[in-house]
């Protein structure tokens, strides 16, 4: 019997007010709510279609959604700006603490929140505890596409089975690809070199991705902008996604 290797016990440690490594800044004044990010994300990350029937049960699996709320009493109703919401990759994530099998862990290397699909047993505690409702659950092997359709899957991303929780990964496969390329060329990753699918698809360039620990990067400048807000900041989750909101959209946005 082989002696099992000793794997050190994993514990996510974050410092108070830590910036994190990767981050997104979303300019809600630029967002037109076109849903291109939703489509691009689903294509990049093998997010399956659930169909009309299951979507009616609220089982839609998009990792990013364009949220829009209505303020005020009728007839003085006005729309809030379009707000794309994905996993906020919290520094102090509420989802991590409740997973009984450590399937959602904090990556020390990339400073994001991981979902390890092969560990997940589908208790859905994490989704219950996520204040941003960013997690989706695969209820019924939606990824079982018939043969020619299965060719659309991105080989860089796992095709998840049913009974597994999943969520936005900040397109970690693209982060890996870019860091790998940068390492091979003996340099640091340039600002703007890594782009998640949502940022790449955004026609208004409302979504900006980059290094938060680099004060010169576009995203860290934007996240220190005076228009910046974080979602549910008072919960102390230290989200890595910053929203920029200043302008008024009028009645229809």
């Amino acid at each position: 019997m082989a002696i099992l290797p000793k794997i050190p016990e994993y514990k996510a440690e974050w410092a108070e007010g830590e910036e994190g490594r990767w981050g997104i800044a979303i300019d809600m004044d630029l967002c037109t709510g076109c849903q291109a990010c939703v489509a691009a994300c689903s294509m990049e990350n093998n997010v399956p279609f659930v169909g009309e029937h299951d979507a009616g049960y609220g089982r839609q699996m998009a990792w990013i959604r364009v949220e829009r709320l209505w303020e005020g009493e009728y007839p003085e109703v006005r729309a809030t700006p379009f707000q794309p919401v994905m996993c906020q990759q919290c520094g102090a994530a509420p989802c991590e603490a409740v997973c009984p099998v450590f399937a959602t862990v904090h990556s020390q290397a990339e400073q994001i929140n991981l979902q390890v699909y092969n560990r997940c047993v589908g208790t859905r505690y994490c989704a219950n505890n996520c204040p941003y409702v960013a997690r989706v659950f695969n209820w019924a092997d939606y990824s079982n596409y018939p043969e020619p359709l299965a060719n659309q899957f991105n080989p860089d991303v796992t095709v998840r089975r049913r009974g597994v929780m999943e969520k936005c990964t900040f397109c970690i496969q693209r982060i890996h690809k870019a860091t790998d390329q940068a390492k091979a060329e003996g340099r640091e990753v340039r600002d703007g070199e890594v782009q998640p699918a949502c940022a790449q698809a955004c026609p208004a360039e409302a979504i900006v991705f980059g290094r938060l620990d680099d004060p010169e990067s576009r995203v860290s400048k934007l996240s220190k902008d005076k228009r910046s807000v974080k979602l549910l900041e008072d919960l102390g989750t230290q989200p890595r996604v910053t929203y920029l909101k200043g302008g008024y959209h009028g009645n229809l946005g």
């Binding site: 050190p8 862990v105 990556s107 020390q108 290397a109 994001i112 796992t158 990964t169 970690i172 890996h176």
Partner: peptide, 12 residues
Amino acid sequence: RIKLIDCGTCHY
């Protein structure tokens, strides 16, 4: 080591 034993290095 942080990079090499990180879950996200291989599982995503």
